[in-house]
Design a protein around this nucleic acid. Sequence first.
DNA 1: ATGGTGGTAAGACCA
Length: 268
Amino acid sequence: MTDRLRLVTWNINSLRLRMALLGRVVEETRADVVCLQETKVDDANFPMEAVRALGFEHVLYRGDKGYNGVAILSKRPIEPAGHRFWGGVEDARHISARLADGMVVHNFYVPAGGDIPDPALNVKFAHKLRFLDDLTAWGATVAGDTTPRVMVGDLNIAPLETDVWSHKQLLKVVSHTPVEVEKLARVQAAGAWTDVVRQVISPDIKLYSWWSYRARDWAAADRGRRLDHIWTDGGLAPRVRGASVLKDARGWTQPSDHAPVMVDIDPA
DNA sequence: ATGGTGGTAAGACCA
């Protein structure tokens, strides 16, 4: 039987700039599958040889020149499981892969949404809300699937009060506004998704995966948000054996502003 | 406090 699967999701904020840091993440976690967001590289320039040198022979990627971009790096065989556009904008924010046991992994980069949390004043926020509505509609179509499914990525929303450094001070800050939190709850309900990171780590405990670059001392201030998520279907959730945020990576030299998030999944 | 920092790519734009 296959071994336990170690799955990592990470908004790397430029794959080419941080290839060495990816190597360190892979070395320290021995991840089997790595889902990346914000690769910021178009497909013609994807650094396939460097990724292969880290041990990933099976790679799927979609990128835009300088922006967005998602990739799934795997040490086990995978095949493409489709991708599409969300919220009516044709950008590279979704890719999916199917492993040999049938498990499908969806990797998402939800729009950040700009600064003003009003869709009438801010087209980026409007796009984010439409993206979430599309995820809800899609979730209803996969909720009854019998094959195991995983949804990971930078969802750019911190849903719980313990997912932000100050619930009260972030209520009007994009990523933690009530409209976003409610829409993300609808996405989760429609797809019958389990937040397996919070299944392992109590919702009572503060947990962040992102800390702004705009802080004198990000670690001392610790004004983080949990924007990066790993969800599974209900059948798969009991097989999740561990979950963690690699907070150390935020403190490495020239880091991403996001830390990797990791789970282990037992074989069926 | 309406800035602060970082990436892309050579301007603003995005986060």
